[in-house]
Design a protein around this nucleic acid. Sequence first.
DNA 1: TAAGTAGATAGAAAAATTCTATATGATGAA
DNA 2: TTCATCATATAGAATTTTTCTATCTACTTA
Lengths: 317, 317
Amino acid sequence: MTSISQLEYAIAVDTHRHFARAAKACHVTQPTLSAQLAKLEDEIGVILFDRSAQPIVPTSEGLAILSQARIVVAEFRKIAAIASGAANEVAGELMVGVIPTVAPYLVPLFLEDFSRAHQKLKIDVREMTTAQITEGLAREIIDVGILAIPVEGINFSTRFLYREPFYLYANKSHQLAQRKKVKGDDIDGKDLWLLEEGHCLRGQVLQACQIKGRKPALANVRFESGSVETLKQLVRQGIGYTLIPHLAIGEDDDVKVISFEEPMPARDIGLMFRREQLKKPATEALEKSIQKMLPRSLTKLAKDAIGLAVRNQNEQN
Amino acid sequence: MTSISQLEYAIAVDTHRHFARAAKACHVTQPTLSAQLAKLEDEIGVILFDRSAQPIVPTSEGLAILSQARIVVAEFRKIAAIASGAANEVAGELMVGVIPTVAPYLVPLFLEDFSRAHQKLKIDVREMTTAQITEGLAREIIDVGILAIPVEGINFSTRFLYREPFYLYANKSHQLAQRKKVKGDDIDGKDLWLLEEGHCLRGQVLQACQIKGRKPALANVRFESGSVETLKQLVRQGIGYTLIPHLAIGEDDDVKVISFEEPMPARDIGLMFRREQLKKPATEALEKSIQKMLPRSLTKLAKDAIGLAVRNQNEQN
DNA sequence: TAAGTAGATAGAAAAATTCTATATGATGAA
DNA sequence: TTCATCATATAGAATTTTTCTATCTACTTA
C-alpha cells in the first residue's frame, strides 16, 4: 500500500537531493527512507531517482510522479487545516521569490503593511530570476513568485497584479530629453543602456522599442548592466538613456522621465504559484496587500492609456 | 497517522451511508472500518458522521472534510495512473463553456480535429456568458471555459490561448472605408454598431476606441445587437461600421476590413478551469487542439504589432 | 419481550514501518 | 594504489499499525 509518508519521503528526496538530509527533514533515519522509497518505486513500477548521478536527480518519469505526489500531499494537508479551522488562517511561512527588476521597487511598498497585518506569518522574500522562480516553485523551495507574466509552465497558475508602463529615462543633455513624449520608433538603440542577458526586462524593452531581429549582438548598444538602478546611475552621470518601469521612477535632478505616446508600452506583473496552491490564504493576503499598497500614480493611469503588454518568449527573468 | 485508506473508508461511508456495506465495498470487515473511521475522527478532531440518524449522515463540518478527502483520493489515484502511463489518456467527458463572441468562430475551427483525435472523450460544448462560465465551473457543471482573460475569481486558473486583434469592419460606402489604417481616435462612436450590454466584447471595443466615461447611454450609438454576425450583417446591408475580432473576419464583398495602426488593439482569449483541474488530460488536449487549429493569419501576426490587450473590469461575458 | 439490525469494543494475529548496525560502492586525496 | 570519506543499500530485530474474529450494546419492531 502506497502511503502518504512514502510520498513525503520521495518529495523530500526531490527537494534535498540527498537521502540522509531528506530523512532528517522527515524525522526518520536514512535506512527507513531508503527502504520506503524503494518500496514506493517497486509498487508503482517507476524508478523515481537516478542514484548514479551526484547529487541524485529525478528520472524523467519520476518528475511527473513527484509533481503529482506534491499535489497529493498538499491536498492531504488541507484536510487537517480544514478540520482545525485554520484553512483560512494566514499563518506559517511564506517564501516569496521576486524578479530583480521588480523587487527593489515593489517589495518596500507592501512588505511592512503585509507583515504588520499578518503577525503569525513568517515572510521570506528573495530576489530570483524567472527561471529560478519556476524551479523553486516546482521543488517547493518558494511558495509564490512575483514576475512578469505570462510565463510558460503547465504546473503553475498566475494572478495578474498590475500593468506597469515603461518610461524613457534620459539625461537632460541628451537630445531625446527635449521631447514631451516619445514613441518606440524614436529609440533606435543608439545610446540605449540595457540590462544584461537573462533579465526579462531587457527583452521587454527591446520589444517596446521594436528593436528586434538582431538580438544577440547589438553593435550600437554600449554597455549592459545587472540592475535598473545601475542603468539609472549611468544616465544620471553622463549621456545616454534607458527605459525604466513605472515603479522605478524616482526624483532625479539631472534626468528627464518621458512618457511614451499612448498606448504606452508596458509589462504585466503577477503572482505565480503551484496549481494546487499550498498556501492559499497567505498568497491571497499577499495579493490583497500588494493591490492595496500600489501607488495611485500607477493604479490611476487611464486603462486605455497603457495598452501594450509586452510578451517576450525567449528572454527570461 | 491519518492514511489514504482511512479517507477511503470515510468516503465509502459517505457514499453508502452504511458501515457494513461501506466496509464490503472497501474489502475489509465492518469492525476494521469502524475502528479506522473512529481513529480518523479522533486524529482530525472532527466527528464526520451523525450515527444517531438512520441512515447516517455527514455532519456539517464533515461535509467539507469529505469533499477534500475525495480530492485527495482522486489525486492519489492519479499517481498510479501516471506511473502506468494511463494518466495522459484523454477519456471520459468534457463539458466546455464558450463566450458567444468567440464560440461561432473558434469552435468550428477545432471541434472536428479535437473530436477525431480523442474518440474516447465525450465532448459537450455550449455557449455561455462569462458569468455563467464562472458559476458553472464553481458548481462543476462545466469542466472548462473559453473566454476573454483576465477574469476575476480566486478559485480558478486560466491558460492563455491567443491574443486576438480587433479590426474595423466598415461598409464600402462609409468614409472610414477609404482609410488604409485607422486608430482608436478615429472612431468617435458615430455610426458604430455595438453589442448589447452584457457582452465583454462591447466593453473591449469601447476601450479600444477610447470611448469611455459615458458608458450607459451612448447617444450617438444607434443600435445594439446580440451577436457579432448581426453587427456584420448590419454593416453589409447599409451604412455604418463595427469592430470585429480577428477570427470573425470573413470574405465579404461590400465591406472593408481595416487594420488598426500598431500596436493593434486586441483581447486575450484563454481557457479557465477549477484550480484542482479534475480533467487535466482532456483540458490540455483541448488547449493543444485549439493552438494547432488556430489560423496562421492569427498566429503569424508579429508579436510587436499586437500589443493592446484590453482589460475591462466592469462589463462581463 | 424476542428477534433483527447497526455499529462499537476486545484481544489476538498479521502486516507495515522503523530502528540500529553494517555492507557496498563511488569519489577523491595522500 | 590505497585509504578515507561520503552516499546509499541491506539485514534483522523492535515497534507500531492494521486487520481479523468474536462478542457486546443500543435501538427497532413484530
